[in-house]
Design a protein around this nucleic acid. Structure first.
Lengths: 340, 340
DNA sequence: AGCCGAATTTTTAACGTTCAACTCGGTCAG
DNA sequence: CTGACCGAGTTGAACGTTAAAAATTCGGCT
């Protein structure tokens, strides 16, 4: 039924024998028009395959219905595999809120900010999502200064009065693991962490200390927390070091699945059975965790996306201030079931 | 210098003492306006921080300057890690062509097509990129029928007269590996592949057969090609099977880095040194390949993105028909250097 | 029948940009 | 000397939609 050229609201109006505005009302405020008229219009819409023109709508209502997010180059960061899921979550949450997701590629943070400003100033997007935000990240304040609405995944240190962030509570994630292992009867619980000096790693390490202490297990687990590079080999080495001790831990908490995978190998190399002799828990719930039957801490990525979009695109007006620290979820698998 | 509300072309015109159209010309066809006037306009643009309104431009010129691509949910497919890089490549190539990338999330292929149609009909995007296209994929023909411009990553079987695809030559990828190994002096070269019946896997297996034959190595390598699930454990098992034979291969080609990683373990378990006693090559050049010092075949993702965008957004008119089969590149690492 | 207010629909006027047609002064060939 | 032509800019209209105001219809009530 499509006519030549794109179908406009005017075509529908003619076909249904009403004015353009009535068609517009049917599309936007259906309750405002009499059911009989509405049906006539709707069937004309269906007949002609009418789709409201986005640009015209955006121009008139000065709202593009879009949010933007930088896509970083392929990285070897630990966040690499979250990338995908995060973008998917954003796209999905955005859709639910009637916003589409625009991606842009830039080299560095400076260009990222410039691009965000340009996108917002040109009315291409309503706001932007920041990503991989670190404590002293320069981006948030630059965006605030430029008046760019944004919400970030990752806390930033500025007083969050005008805008917001959503983050995952790393300490709580590890704390949950320790709780779980303690509940399973473990007393000596080791920790394999990242090198000191970065927030994520330090938070996870802090979660171990705090929770071990709360359960009175810290004394019996002296120096059972070690830190090192986030690689498989380093995980294996650190685990081996702990398991060779006289007071070897009966359970190991790792700050990443990579470290945990290394530890798994170390356990096997010693002729021990993971989950039986030594409990093991990883972090991030990567695909490999599932393959290895490894318990792991899962970040609530879909909810993060939802929260970000929710804050960035509130039904009414401007960006809502948020500061949401979400709790990750422990996925228990064979590597850490209750002790026999 | 920003005034209240968004800065429009009219504001700039007033500031520069010219008409709106002249400002427009400065932005779009700078050579059409006298240098003196141009400078005056440009400095007004800079002063006011003017950014042309995207919606208005899109409306007037009926071109949104966008392309769309579905983002699939996090998958355990082998393509999972390509996702990221591919989207980045698209975004980057798009930017170079003055197009932005829009992402959308849908459940299934049917919804994907419906969304693409909607996006194009509403003028939100000029065209769409298809992804993970398999030989008898229903999407290409549906999109052709709906008149949606698209280019796909992955061949489709329809006669590609009206539209196009870009793909990577899997057979050539494996062929290159075999060439490399043969040049290193290997005669018995094994192959670890995916289960039969899927194009990617079959193409890779075919590359082995063809190239082994061309080098006259097929006779001496009878049944040195095995197929199995694409998992680490399966790779280890298959490799073990081959290496335990009397006529054990001196080199192994795997259809994925996952299989190769498993094979690596099998080699080590036998007390052999990878790269020394047995050469190993994986496929896809995942981050793990680098970590494991494993040679691997790298898909030219950035170029794929460039080619797709190039076909989808030609400077002048409609989508160019393309059918580009790109050659992947072998990245040689320690696991397959020249034999001592 | 006639009139009021509510419900429904139409008219008017933008939103910011660009295309096409036009003005204006000057040049240049015939 | 005239008229076609050129470069540089301006003016008016249009792209498709929607908010606000104006106009029409309708049901109920005297």
């Amino acid at each position: 039924m499509a006519k030549s050229g794109p179908v406009t609201i005017a075509d529908v109006a003619v076909a249904a024998g009403v004015s353009k505005q009535t068609v517009s009302n049917v599309m936007n405020y259906p309750e405002k028009v009499r059911p009989k008229t509405r049906d006539r219009v709707l069937s004309a819409v269906a007949d002609l395959g009418f789709q409201p023109n986005r640009a015209a709508r955006a121009l008139r209502s000065s709202s593009a219905g879009m949010i933007a997010c930088r896509i970083e180059p392929v990285s070897s960061h630990s966040l690499a595999h979250l990338h995908d899921g995060f973008l998917h979550a954003l796209a999905e949450a955005g859709q639910a809120a009637g916003r589409h997701l625009m991606l842009f590629a830039v080299d560095d943070a400076e260009n990222e900010v410039a691009t965000c400003v340009r996108l917002v100033r040109s009315g291409a997007v309503e706001g932007v999502v920041l990503y991989n935000v670190v404590p002293d990240d320069p981006r948030p304040s630059l965006l605030v200064d430029a008046g760019v609405p944004f919400v970030s995944f990752g806390r930033f240190s500025d007083s969050a009065d005008a805008t917001g962030w959503v983050d995952v509570d790393n300490a709580a994630g590890i704390a949950g693991v320790v709780e779980h292992l303690a509940a399973c009867g473990h007393q000596r619980i080791g920790f394999l962490g990242f090198p000191e000096g970065h927030r994520v790693g330090d938070d996870r390490a802090g979660g171990w200390v705090t929770t071990m202490d709360r359960h009175g297990l810290l004394a019996g687990s002296h120096r059972l927390d070690v830190r090192g590079e986030d690689t498989w080999i380093s995980g294996a080495r650190m685990a081996r070091g702990l398991l060779d001790r006289a007071d070897a831990p009966t359970a190991l908490v790792a700050a990443s699945d990579t470290l945990a995978a290394g530890a798994l190998q170390a356990v096997r190399d010693l002729g021990l059975t993971p989950g039986q002799d030594v409990a093991l828990v990883g972090y991030d719930d990567t695909p490999s965790a599932e393959v290895l039957d490894l318990s792991s801490v899962r970040q609530p990525i879909p909810e993060i996306g939802r929260r970000i979009v929710e804050a960035l695109c509130p039904p009414d007006g401007t960006v809502l201030p948020v500061a949401a620290l979400l709790a990750p979820e422990l996925v228990v698998r064979g590597s850490s079931r209750r002790r026999a």
